[in-house]
């Protein structure tokens, strides 16, 4: 049971990294990308290759993966951000399809459909992290660092410029901001951070294959952001926790296995549609609404004492 909870903690940490990094582009910069799983995958493959052929050092794997993620992000952003914004979604979709094919077919590097196996546990400062508990602690720490970094970034002048650009591009340009540079930077940072999730995933599962980095996964991450509340810091974290833990909760109910998948997908779809229509700010928006209601409640019921 403990191992189960520890592995859930790792999965939550990965989901939090993916959702929060996607929110930098989706929520703050207003760029819709459906290729986030690609950068998750690039991080995972980079870390696996480093660990299998060079060193199991976590720091080294992180450096290589983040550089690879940033490079791939640049590859997507530079051509795609020069066309009109709406086309970025299409470009990212194309990028996702191409990347999935590369993951599946580039046998020599990715191991093809079979993937890469036997990835050794990571070492941190020379110490091997083998236990589930160690991995869970490491993942949560890394997720904390990524989230703290993103929070600082959003509050910096880069974050402010991205929000300005998203709210009024013309006014942002008139204030001296170059939209192409800003958006490219946001995509590159976001992709680089997403690859951190891939590093954790590779070391945790000691096995990677293309199945984990498909369009389905990209959509799942997008659902986390929208469900939690795009353009907020708490939202993607809440969404990530919900989407990761919801299947675990379902498994406690006595639902036959073959219905679990469809039920999950139906529930996500339904929740996203309902939120999009009634609460575009997601769970964070709902929480704000509840807080406001609670603040109003004593005044609203004159008969009741608040003491």
């Amino acid at each position: 049971m403990t191992a189960y909870l520890e592995s859930l903690a790792v999965l939550c940490a990965i989901a939090a990294i993916l959702a929060s990094s996607l929110d930098l582009v989706l929520g703050f910069a207003g760029i819709f990308s459906v290729a986030h799983a690609v950068f998750f995958g690039i991080g995972a493959y980079a870390a696996s290759l480093v660990a299998l052929h060079l060193t199991a050092s976590l720091a080294f794997a992180l450096a290589v993966a983040m550089a690879a993620g940033a490079g791939a992000g640049l590859l997507l952003a530079v051509p795609a951000l020069r066309v009109r914004e709406e086309y970025f979604v299409v470009a990212s979709l194309g990028f996702q399809v191409v990347a999935t094919t590369v993951f599946e077919q580039w046998q020599a590097v990715t191991g093809g459909i079979g993937g890469l196996t036997g990835i050794p546990p990571p070492t941190v400062a020379g110490l091997k992290v083998e236990s589930y508990a160690g991995m869970a602690a490491l993942s949560v720490l890394l997720a904390g660092a990524v989230l703290a970094g993103l929070r600082a970034l959003v509050r910096s002048r880069l974050g402010r410029a991205l929000q300005a650009l998203n709210q009024d591009e013309v006014a942002a340009q008139a204030a001296g901001h170059n939209p192409v540079t800003l958006r490219t930077l946001a995509v590159v940072v976001s992709c680089s951070l997403a690859s951190v999730g891939g590093v954790i995933y590779a070391f945790f599962s000691s096995f990677v294959n293309p199945e984990s980095f498909t369009l389905d996964e990209s959509v799942r991450v997008m659902v986390m952001v929208i469900m939690g509340g795009a353009g907020t810091t708490a939202g993607p974290l809440l969404g990530a926790l919900f989407v990761t833990l919801f299947p675990a909760l379902l498994s406690f109910l006595t639902i036959p296995d073959q219905f679990l998948g469809p039920i999950q997908r139906l529930a996500y779809g339904l929740i996203v549609v309902v939120l999009m229509v009634y609460e575009p700010d997601g769970m964070v928006g709902l929480a704000r609404r509840l807080r406001r209601l609670r603040a109003l409640a004593p005044a609203g019921k004159p008969g009741e004492s608040t003491a």
Partner: peptide, 29 residues
């Protein structure tokens, strides 16, 4: 953005403030 950097500031008839940034942030941008 280059023209703005050269010191050309402008307003707009429909203002074009950043609605979800604070008053201070609008100037800081």
């Amino acid at each position: 953005h280059r023209i703005a950097e050269l010191g050309v500031g402008r307003t707009f008839q429909n203002l074009r403030l950043f609605p979800r940034l604070t008053v201070l942030e609008n100037v800081l941008v």
